[in-house]
Design a protein around this nucleic acid. Sequence first.
RNA 1: CGGGGCGUAGCGCAGCCCGGUAGCGCAUCUGCUUUGGGAGCAGAGGGUCGCAGGUUCAAAUCCUGUCGCCCCGACCA
Length: 506
Amino acid sequence: MAVRQSDFPSSYQQPTLMAKKITERAKDYSQWYLDVVREAQLASHSPVRGCMVIKPNGYALWENMQRQLDDMFKETGHRNAYFPLFIPKSFLSKEAQHVEGFAKECAVITHSRLINSEDGVAVDPDSKLEEELIVRPTSETIIWDTYRDWIQSYRDLPILLNQWANVVRWEMRTRLFLRTMEFLWQEGHTAHATEEEAREEAHRMLEVYRSFAEDYMAMPVQTGVKTESERFAGALDTYCIEAMMQDGKALQAGTSHFLGQNFAKAFDVRFQDRDGKEKYVWATSWGVSTRLVGGLVMTHSDDNGLILPPRLAPVQVAIVPIWRNDDEQARVMEYGASILQTLKDAGIRAIFDDRDQYKPGWKFAQHEVEGTPLRIAVGPRDVEKGNVELARRDTMKKEIVSREGIEKLLPELLETIQADLLAAAKERTRAQTRSAATYDEFKEILDSEGGFVYAHWDGTTETEERIKNDTKATIRCLPLHPESDPGKCMVTGKESPYPVLFARAY
RNA sequence: CGGGGCGUAGCGCAGCCCGGUAGCGCAUCUGCUUUGGGAGCAGAGGGUCGCAGGUUCAAAUCCUGUCGCCCCGACCA
């Protein structure tokens, strides 16, 4: 795994918050989530409605996600590029379903200037734009407008690009990380000569997301394909990864779209193929966002705060020194510093928390609430005996181990924690996944336990809509490679070839 | 957009019903003592009470308006 040495984050020098107050999960999950995000100092609400300030702790986590995902994109042949934040209004209207999907949530730029006024500044009415600009809700349109100029021949294909960017969707109801009006994400946009190749690409990137979620976030996911009503506006097929949160609600954690030739036709992107004929290009797009941070919080954390999987934790090990007097301090500091060096040399992201304005107990609590996977405490007794006290965040268990060999022990232990978190999340998700034979049973499960529910469905949008209205549950996805398991739709009794996955979702 | 809540010190809040010129905890600063699970004592600094009107001798408090944010429901990643 890619690891990086880390010095003490500068944010740690700043005053920290008052005594932590985290609502118990069982009491109010929604409030618990907000409390954890606040106490772990991941993000805070901004002065702007629905937007957030991502604080250093939260951003470091996002950076680790970015770094890993970016490596995975590069490994699958993609390069990064950057397209503008602003999109001419006319571009949005070129693909009919795409417009319909995003029209209701676009920020529109109408003027370019402010003037002085009695209350400070006002919009200068003389600066009205000839063509209004849309703040990108996603970049298909401007990218495909550009691809038209890049593609003439089959030799120009495929184009495999990704961009890291911010996007804006004017949401009515927001929640830190899970749904904000502005969010950070990556969006891949690829162009292919054949349908088969584009479909392969969409599946390849879905697999990248699945493995990232499980291998790095330790967040098990269900993969599948969306129904027509849940499909990305403008896509022929939307593939997704769906994760189950602790409270029994599903989270769409990533999507990969097979766009067919919709955007190629809308933006007139054609190429001359080997056979000399002119054809429209096939497309995909795929993305994950800072929403993943919210998913990570809700997958692993507990009533004591954040729990981070070691592979993504900005700080993997925090070393806390303990002493009583100057003499002890000198010895403990030297001991701790040497351990820090040992860990850094072993490629572990470690910090030595030698701030003397905080007592050890305070630091213990702080590193716990911030989710640091491992804590090492070193005091005079440890110096004398050549030991350290190791504490695991996930299990909250402590043990004394010899300082000798920690450069081997700790990397293994971090991987053990990573594996244990995934196993625990898998087991929880398994327990939260059920099947319902009848509509009554379906409702009963949703109201009592929540979670994923497999049930038969007749394949119509009408029935899907009715279920949503009755129960607030939606079809999260249809299996990618369904095994034949025929039954009757739990609502209409019509034929159903296989069960599909339902849940109430974020 | 409907329902609810909240704007008072950096953060979290009390005070408002019953008007009298602003307080508590944490944080910050100084000093001393402390340090194996969120330290103690003593002292200190810090606030246009969201904004604008109005009532009044007097408004954080009452009235009107306005702006903003958060939470719960209808759309979405």
